[in-house]
Amino acid sequence: MDTTVVNTGTEVKAWGGGNKPLNASYGKMMMWFFIVSDALTFSGFLAAYGFSRFKFIESWPIADEVFTHIPFYHEPAPMIYVAFMTFILIMSSVTMVLAVDAGHHMNKAKVTFYMFLTIIGGLIFVGSQAWEWATFIKGDYGAVQTKGGNILQFVDTDGHRVALSDFAISESNERVQHEQKDGIWFSSEGTLPSYTVDEVYKGLEANPNILVRTELLDEHGHKTVLSREESIEQLKNNGKLVVEGANLHVNEYGTSLFANFFFFITGFHGFHVFSGVVINIIIFFNVILGTYEKRKNYEMVEKVGLYWHFVDLVWVFVFTFFYLV
């Protein structure tokens, strides 16, 4: 920093140099500019999500039915776990800003302690997100995809969801998963669903209390349930593929676009959190080694803090648009 020219001797002229209209250091200002551009990237993704959602506004999955899981607790409880994740991230933002504040007071012990808490918070968040992904990929009830790509789910006469395994009739089945060792070495296929469409259809016929629920939303925002005749008709004529869980091709909860956007946006955000944790760890060790003590300022903690708060800021929006709205 000593080599920076701070005085050019021409201060009297506005354009003579030495002016600091923004009163911010180079590093901090560039972090702000990076944040602006990253914010625009995230807005691009979220706006694209909004575009697809508006396009299929009549059949979009209901988030409260998709994200209902809490670890070690088996009753469906929407919102609770994601609210916990949000709180963890806000909390780690608070410890980060406390670390910045301690840095202003040149208090190395406190900076170390709060940086440590921030890293722990970030790790809990990334872990929670991984768990949320795993649950989403695994799925819970199973569904049948039609020729047109729509999803048919199954409910009992009270409107409660019914899992495929509760009514499908298993038959002896010759079809086995094709693996590389059985044929041409470069061709294989993904895991086969537990049931075939035919088995699901036989199960539906045998259980008079089971109905098909389509993707379409009625005027109250509930999914449309077909009558018994329509259910059998729909599954018989259009049922094509049994879907369990969600991935980039199919999604048992509704349109596969929902899963695609969920994986892409929360994945991109999760990657930001992960890189934030890595950067925080680097800075944490720098603090312990006394790098900023020697430098006589903790501005680096502040710059990393800006990034970390930005990650929190993005999550606030992801939370709203994926789980609330």
Binding site: S43, A47, G50, F51, R53, F54, K55, F56, I57, E58
Partner: peptide, 14 residues
């Protein structure tokens, strides 16, 4: 600007 453009277009396609 971005939100306006994309949501307008999405609504139109719907």
């Amino acid at each position: 600007y971005l939100i306006f453009i994309l949501l307008q277009e999405g609504g139109y396609i719907e």
